[in-house]
């Protein structure tokens, strides 16, 4: 499995693969890709999700409800380039809707590097907030080899970087 559903919820949802509180209120929850899509229908790289993961400071970029832009929009490509050029934060995934629509990003730094999160390149595209994500949600995404910014198949959230799902 290369991706999971990700949703922001008011209550801890039953049946979630992983869920954690966020300091601005409510929960972030991940759901299995073969289950029903939660509201927002956002996909996240599965490696960014770990039910045993520790808490972390995160930049959560979410498009307003119902709003997405093409993943290949130059604004997204520019943000991907900036993310590749900067020190890799440890957890980073774009949030993808359908096969090719960008709807946000989740970046977390377990070293608490707030400055890195403040300069989140995806925050130039959609509204962002810096939140403390509690334990039980965040995994680790290894840095991609680069300089590839393309996704490898329909619906794969970057930085997933290979064809075989």
């Amino acid at each position: 499995m290369s991706w999971c559903w990700l949703a922001r919820t008011d209550e801890r949802p039953p049946g979630a693969l992983a869920a954690a509180t966020i300091s601005s209120g409510g929960f972030l929850a991940a759901f299995a890709s073969d289950g029903p899509a939660p509201p927002g229908e956002r996909k996240i790289d599965a490696r960014a999700v770990d039910p045993d993961g520790a808490s972390a400071l995160a930049s959560l970029v979410l498009a307003p409800d119902g709003v997405t832009i093409a993943f290949d929009d130059p604004a997204v490509s520019g943000a991907l380039r900036a993310a590749l050029a900067a020190p890799w934060p440890g957890v980073l995934s774009t949030l993808v809707v359908e096969t090719s629509r960008f709807a946000g990003a989740l970046t977390a730094a377990r070293d608490g590097d707030r400055a890195r999160l403040r300069s989140d390149p995806f925050a130039r595209i959609f509204p962002a907030e810096i939140v403390e994500v509690g334990p039980g949600l965040l995994g680790t995404t290894p840095p991609p080899t680069g300089p590839v910014i393309q996704r490898y198949g329909g619906g794969e959230p970057w930085p997933w970087d290979r064809f075989a799902g």
């Binding site: 380039r81 080899t145 680069g146 300089p147 590839v148 910014i149 393309q150």
Partner: peptide, 12 residues
């Protein structure tokens, strides 16, 4: 790298 980044190719 601007070509490589869209060509499913990697540099190390």
């Amino acid at each position: 790298q601007d070509e490589v980044e869209v060509a499913y190719t990697r540099l190390v």
